[in-house]
Design a protein around this nucleic acid. Structure first.
Length: 705
DNA sequence: GAGTTTGAAACT
DNA sequence: CAGTTTCAAACTC
């Protein structure tokens, strides 16, 4: 699909400006004549437009801008536009502030264009393929002024590398602070970002459900494909909406510290951007599994072979500073980097470029979101899937390619890698990039060509924890805790293992001889491949949407129950709380709408739930009252006499309650009628009260004071 | 907690 | 593709 933010399409120029330069000219200028490799920056009034002298930015200048805090942020006013906002610098009042940058890619051209506008300056530019990506059409990044500057993604090369030239690309580093994370929402999720997911803290991963509507940031990977990037304010995420995203398309959201947008800090961000000139590409798919916590990225349709060089026109998936999050390391914890070649020390952004095929259609074969909000990325590892300049991936990286049909070619990357917080620890690198990019995004894609098998090298992560399942929890993103597995024979490398089946690493599990961790990526990779060979949909959510209603869920494959009547949790349909469908091959199914047995079970379950809730509420209330009581009341009168109610201590109350419960149990065992049971319980309560009174009368204390 | 039942996954 | 085996979760006692 076309990116809404792709406003500059056709703004390419055939000029011959030296590559790597960015020409900045007044916003609103068409810039069609801009020389390739240049970006026009036009100064203007706050926001956009305006008359400001034209400037030319060289890669070095661009890098400098990034260092100065050029931030990409959500543009509330411009749908589908990725905003770049330059962080305010207190010290320089005269300095122009870039508030908005739009980078668009020109499908048919090698020149990318875009515009940047700021409070005082508006820029429109055309990017040099070399600058933004090897000769690939680049997307437009629109930057508009925003009052909310501290959001952020920083556009620029990493501080560690001042020039862009070396890598020929512009990185979109994010704030250094605690991890930038990307979560993808289930494709089946509502079109609007769930309010519940709109809050979080810096470094936290927030799950945003795919939506239509306003976009906070958008990067068009190629014609027809759009990568979305949303930058969120530091502690809270505005209930942004995303536009240009197909319904259900997962949307990454990242949170950065307010006011922090140091380019050098880029980390943990995942950037998807085109690196080639392939026309109409866009092939990155985000796939989320219902109820799964594991994001996957899917690259579809790689038409070229794996050996294609980075300079070749190919869409590229870039993982910048993505660090494999091993066993859920705490934010800020040192983590081996997924990307970056040979760079230790961590400040420098590291990227992995993965060529991706041109996108033609969207989301074919994509797994529909399922229960819950645990997304995963599935990256088809076509032969074309290649790690540029990298012979190997950093620890935990699993990139598989399988020959054969498209569906069989996937690379599964644990969400950790995409959500890892950046750390300062030295990292194994695959490719060093002068710039790091930020924001993650996903694009739609389709494929047309069969992937070629090329297993991606995997390295072990020092931080790999054999017990980690990568479960994301406690971030308020909607992820749910997953039960630990108890596998004993499968080594957690078969679909028997829920962790593995969910695309997660085992963590805090009770499994034996577990290989589902970063320490055994090779084995894991092979296992994943084997599963995909057996069933290309192996990692797809089992629960999808039915044809009829948007809201109806159904088991995509159907169950095969024979003895449970589909009314026990053995049945996957019942377990998922959905009715059996035509796909099911079950025998003696009782899990259908009008089933009396099912209704009875439902009623019982509801009643039980109500009881539990009531009991919990009562206990909470009672406990609260008992705790507060001493502070609210006086135990002794002015005369020093102990007041009656002071004898009703917490222990007394609990004892009384136990007596009542015992009476209730007795009544139940005796099959008493409810009326009789009630009477007996009240009588018991009376006896308890009398006993308390009796005790109080005998033990009147005196205020020690 | 041990043993049984169950159905998905894996295998033949 | 069908039948069998393996496996781990669900369930029962």
């Amino acid at each position: 699909m076309a990116a809404k933010g792709d406003k500059t399409g056709g703004e390419t120029n055939g000029s011959s400006e030296s590559s790597g330069n960015i020409l900045i000219k007044p916003d609103g200028g068409d810039g069609n004549q801009q020389a390739p490799g240049t970006v026009r920056i036009v100064s203007g009034t706050a926001g956009r437009g305006g008359n400001v002298p034209m400037q030319i930015l060289t890669p070095q200048m661009l890098a400098s801008l990034s260092q100065q805090g050029l931030i990409i942020q959500n543009d509330g006013e411009n749908k589908g536009i990725l905003q770049a906002v330059k962080r305010a610098r207190p010290s320089s009042s005269s300095e122009q502030t870039v508030t908005k940058v739009v980078i668009t890619r020109n499908p048919g051209n090698k020149v990318s264009s875009g515009n940047v506008s700021g409070a005082n300056t508006s820029f429109k530019f055309q990017g040099d393929p070399k600058v933004i990506g090897s000769g690939s059409p680049i997307k437009v990044i629109t930057v508009s002024q925003g009052s909310n500057i501290p959001k952020g993604v920083v556009i620029a090369s990493s501080p560690s590398k001042q020039t862009i030239a070396p890598s020929n690309r512009i990185a979109l580093p994010t704030v250094k602070s605690p991890g930038k994370t990307i979560m993808l929402a289930s494709p089946t999720t509502p079109k609007k970002i769930a309010p519940a997911s709109t809050s979080g803290t810096v470094g936290q991963t927030i799950l945003v459900k795919g939506s239509m509507g306003t976009t906070s940031g958008t990067i068009t990977l190629s014609s027809g494909a759009v990568a979305k990037v949303i930058n969120v304010m530091n502690t809270s995420v505005p209930s942004s909406q995303v536009s240009g995203v197909a319904p259900g398309t997962p949307v990454p959201v990242q949170i950065s510290a307010a006011g922090q947008a140091p380019p050098q800090l880029a980390s943990g961000l995942t950037t998807i951007r085109p690196a080639g000139n392939l026309p109409g590409q866009g092939n990155l798919q985000a796939v989320s599994m219902a109820g799964k916590n594991f994001p996957y990225m899917r690259l579809v349709n790689v038409s070229t072979n794996a050996t294609t060089s980075a300079t070749q026109a190919k869409p590229v998936l870039q993982l910048a500073n993505a660090k494999p999050i091993a066993p859920a390391p705490a934010l800020g914890q040192a983590i081996p980097s997924l990307t970056s070649a040979g760079q230790a020390g961590g400040a420098a952004p590291r990227t992995i470029n993965i060529p991706i095929a041109p996108a033609q259609t969207i989301n074919k074969g994509i797994v529909q979101g399922g229960v819950g909000n645990q997304p995963r990325f599935i990256m088809p590892a076509n032969a074309a899937l290649k790690i540029i300049n990298a012979g190997k991936l950093a620890p935990g990286t699993t990139l598989l390619s399988a020959g054969g049909n498209l569906l069989q070619s996937y690379a599964v990357i644990p969400a950790h890698y995409l959500t890892q917080p950046v750390t300062s620890q030295a990292q194994p690198s695959i490719q060093s990039s002068s710039s790091s990019s930020t924001s993650s995004s996903q694009a739609n894609s389709t494929s047309s060509q069969p992937p070629q098998p090329q297993p991606a090298p995997i390295k072990h992560s020092n931080t790999a924890n054999s017990s980690s399942n990568g479960m994301l929890t406690g971030d308020g993103s909607g992820s749910r805790p997953r039960k630990p597995c108890n596998c004993t024979k499968s080594q957690c490398l078969k679909l028997y293992c829920d962790c593995f089946a969910n695309g997660e690493f085992c963590r805090n599990c009770n499994c034996n001889n577990c290989l589902n961790n970063l320490d055994h990526e090779d084995e894991r990779t092979k296992a994943v491949k084997a599963c995909l060979d057996r069933n290309p949909h192996a990692f797809h959510p089992k629960i999808g949407k039915g044809h009829g209603s948007q809201t109806n869920r159904r088991h995509n494959k159907g169950c095969n129950c024979k003895r449970s009547g589909c009314l026990k949790n053995y049945c996957e349909c019942y377990e998922a709380k959905i009715l059996c469908s035509n796909f099911c091959k079950c025998v003696g199914c009782k899990n259908f709408e009008e089933s009396p047995e099912r209704k009875t079970l439902m009623h019982l379950a509801d009643a039980a739930e109500v009881r539990v809730q009531q009991q919990t509420a009562a206990r909470t209330k009672l406990s609260s009252q008992l705790q507060d009581y001493p502070t609210k009341t006086r135990e002794f009168s002015d005369t020093g006499e102990r007041l009656p109610f002071s004898f009703i201590t917490k222990e007394v109350a609990e004892a009384t309650l136990q007596c009542l419960m015992a009476q209730a149990d007795e009544s139940e065992r005796s099959s008493h009628s409810s009326d009789l049971a009630e009477s007996l319980i009240l009588e018991e309560f009376g006896r308890c009260i009398l006993q308390v009174i009796h005790s109080a009368s005998k033990a009147k204390g005196v205020n020690p004071e």
